[in-house]
Design a protein around this nucleic acid. Structure first.
Lengths: 132, 132
DNA sequence: CATTGACCCTCCAGTAACTGGAAGCCTCAT
DNA sequence: ATGAGGCTTCCAGTTACTGGAGGGTCAATG
């Protein structure tokens, strides 16, 4: 199978597939003409990667998950550890963003948004306190 | 004032200050010895930038905000527009992350996390459906 | 048989916002 | 004079791709 077919079937862009080969996530053979030659298994791995990436796993996580995916003797605790760690990081990010949102929403609400220069947003960002 | 003092007073790392000069966010003078020479105003701007960055504004947003900060004739609607836009993007990110979190949390909960290979996380990522 | 259009290939560069490190000058205190 | 910091520049690396240039390959058509 050529890269275009694989891209269509796996949902991963050709460019990205080449990149994944570069970093060693997949290892397609080559045809005589130099084209990458993929198998069904590659399609599966790429779809797997696509899903993992969609859940926000890093490429390094994906590398680990892929090896566990292929390992008949994996222990589910290994998988769970990766996922839990990632979950924690997502929760941290959410918390950070929610705190930003709270501040921003408050400032936006307080700002008149008219033609006058007075602006609570600018004031909040301004370091007047330093000049006290 | 030298860069170290400014870093301490503004809370922005020296390295970052140099970077901000590189990209034209601030323009300190130079002393005879080649050292950057900062004023109080630079400290204020950097503290401003630090806060804006902490709220997640991009560098380009910061450029805009900084010019509005310095513009006596700004209209608060300009500031508000930037902030609202940013707020929207933050909300998008939160939504995406929450969706990831929901999926992940469910999978993590379902996973036994023991020594057996069976794992709902791996199963969810696996593209069995393609091979139907 | 030549051409055309759709594929495929390999580099190279750019993205966002820094951060780390090397190599080397400046300054001040001992 | 020497040593500890502080300052300088420049280069490289980070994350995960994405776009584009320049150039082969293949199948079908005229």
């Amino acid at each position: 199978m050529n890269i275009g077919d694989v891209a269509r079937q796996s949902g991963v862009p050709a460019k990205t597939i080449r990149y994944y080969e570069d970093i060693g996530l997949i290892r397609p053979n080559r045809s005589e003409n130099g084209y990458r030659a993929f198998t069904e298994n590659h399609v599966h791995k790429l779809a797997f990667l696509g899903r993992a990436r969609a859940l926000g796993f890093t490429i390094e996580d994906c590398r680990t998950l892929l090896s566990l995916y292929e390992d008949e003797k994996r222990e589910s605790m290994q998988v769970k550890a990766v996922a839990e760690d990632h979950l924690r990081q997502i929760e941290e990010k959410i918390a950070k963003l929610q705190s930003m949102r709270a501040t921003l929403a408050e400032l936006v609400e307080k700002c008149a948004g008219d033609h006058r220069p007075d602006c609570p947003i600018i004031e909040d960002l301004s370091p007047e306190r330093l000049a006290k």
